[in-house]
Amino acid sequence: MMDPLLDIENLWVRFPTRQGVFDAVRGVSFTLGRERLGIVGESGSGKSMTGRAILRLIRPPGRVEAEHIKLDGVDLLQKSEKEMRDVRGERISMVMQDPKFSLNPVMTIGDQIIEAYRLHNNASKSEARSKALEMLGAVSIRDPERVMRAYPHEMSGGMGQRIMIAMMLIPNPQILIADEPTSALDVSVQRQVLDIMDRLVKERGMGLIFISHDLNLVADFCDRVLIMYAGRIVEVCDADKLHDAQHPYTRGLLNSLPRLDTPRDRLDVLERDPAWSDASSVSGRI
């Protein structure tokens, strides 16, 4: 096995509140190779916080603590805020749920991509422009010239998300963190966006962390899955074996989904066992 791209040991995210310290992520460890790693869980399970913590994007008073968060063997926690800025985008990129909030509404898409490119590369304007066109082509946008001139509000959700992915890939990052990238999209568009992400990750040998609440989607799309509950990893399994998962929480989630092929009068309701949140986190290291 190759050295992992990302190696996280004992990650905690803590928020002080009036009632005491709230731990959003509690002792999570995992590694990421050149693979598609899914993190699934319900709202409040700490899955998004884990993604943000890797980039140290937790706003104060929240705190990130860990043994280490190693990117290619270098601990991100030891870096200064200035050095982190080079890591964000340059080496680890993040795609958020709603592209509308991530794009500048008063700049054309072309200008934004060109600016992003020139921020990371010492390139002339025309060079950046041809690169931007190439990127838009890479995310299967048919008429990139027209899209370059458009403003974000003129784009559909699926288009916007593809543009976001294109922008995130410009600096050639090693890792892409996608936080619910398709949950605001219609099912048919969802598929296309996933296919694009899949292709790019494979072609460039990137690592992908795919954060989602959708078990079926993750089972379909990822190689390996971490299931999170109450800030901990409760189960780690190969994505194609997700439907044979062992942990009662994972089983409960799977059974609570309505299915077209097996009609039932009532859906199974997840019975939460307090022991799940007290048990220690399962390691997702390889």
Binding site: E42, S43, H213, L215, G252, L253, S256, L257, P258, D265, R266, L267, D268, V269, L270
Partner: peptide, 14 residues
Amino acid sequence: LDVSVQAEILNLLA
């Protein structure tokens, strides 16, 4: 809603 909550609400509605 989350899927586990969805199951509860759908059961309630039924």
